[in-house]
């Protein structure tokens, strides 16, 4: 049949056979079919991710001159980013705040996830919805609600005053790194709960029974079975909280005060108030590298540790 088809298409037998050859290749190569299907997604993602990053890297080597940009190559921005004590301090503070917040969130969420995974037998889904529901409400409003609570005339201060426990509002509540940590912990709690819960839920209960049978008490069972097996969830949770919180500028801006500002706030300012885009680009790239380095080191260390446990 194929031979007849080529012969009857006298006009352009060449092209026809090319098309046929392509069709045959298409049928034969599963990878080709797969990549054809994946190409729209791949192209959009690659284009919308890679191009901006390339341009941002380029810009980080330029200089802002008033309202114009001098596109001659210079390392001055990076020089400033490293030398300027303000940036280093802000970067350090960002890492500290979001590191503390990540640690705190995971620590307070683990028992909760543990409770739902091991001690809730009826209406599990209800508990899961309850735990994740606040997460679906506006991020800004959740941050703002902490301003209401912690503020100078906020819920805690005005409540305590109304009760006659204090005369003057407690000022340390709002506009401090602590306020930022509490607010972020609250805002990202769902990101800690879910991965930990999933990894706990996956643990085969008969492993615990086997451990009990072999003479381990509750503490030993937790330390030797439950905790090691849930570590992947804990690791996923820490990364999923650390990365977005380190780049947050809304929470510090709303509840952080001058002592709670983070690197992201200064990056935001470079693109707004300060209007020094090349410097902003350099800071953004510095941040990206630091975050990536911290995350990779963290993953490497936890891998080593879990390998040792196993």
């Amino acid at each position: 049949m194929s031979i007849e088809a080529t012969a009857s298409g006298e006009g352009m037998p060449e092209r026809k056979s090319w098309r046929r050859r392509f069709r045959a290749l298409f049928l034969r190569s599963e990878a080709l079919r797969g990549y054809t299907l994946l190409s729209p997604t791949m192209l959009v993602m690659a284009f919308a991710m890679c191009l901006p990053f390339i341009v941002m890297v380029l810009m980080s080597f330029w200089t802002q001159k008033g309202f114009d940009i001098d596109t001659s190559f210079t390392l001055n921005n990076y020089q400033e980013a490293i030398d300027g004590p303000i940036y280093e301090a802000l970067l350090f503070r960002s890492l500290m705040i979001s590191g503390t917040c990540t640690l705190a969130t995971v620590l307070i969420s683990y028992p909760m996830a543990y409770y739902v995974a091991f001690h809730v037998h009826k209406r599990k889904l209800l508990w899961i919805i309850l735990m994740t529901l606040p997460f679906w409400t506006s991020y800004l409003l959740r941050v703002f609600s902490w301003k209401i609570i912690l503020g100078y005339n906020g819920a805690i201060n005005s409540g305590l005053k109304a009760l006659g426990l204090i005369d003057q509002p407690l000022e340390f509540l709002l506009y401090s790194p602590t306020a930022v940590i509490i607010t972020l912990a609250h805002a990202w709690a769902a990101f800690a709960i879910l991965p930990i819960y999933v990894s706990l839920e996956k643990i085969d209960r008969s492993l615990l029974e086997a451990a009990a049978d072999l003479g381990e008490g509750p503490v030993g069972r937790f330390l030797r079975i439950t905790l090691p097996l849930s570590l992947p969830g804990v690791i996923a949770a820490t990364i999923m909280i650390f990365i977005p919180t380190v780049g947050d500028y809304v929470t510090p801006a709303l509840v952080g005060g001058p002592n709670g500002l983070m690197l992201a706030n200064i990056i935001e300012a470079q693109f707004g108030r300060i209007n020094n885009w090349p410097m902003g680009a350099a800071l953004a790239i510095t941040m990206l590298f630091v975050v990536a380095a911290v995350t990779l080191i963290y993953i490497w260390i936890t891998r080593k540790l879990t390998a040792r446990i196993a």
Binding site: M56, M240, I243, P244, A264, A281, A284, M287
Partner: peptide, 15 residues
Amino acid sequence: LVIPGIIMGVALLIV
């Protein structure tokens, strides 16, 4: 998923 939103935001803004 693993890039802070602010970095993607400014990168897109620049381009």
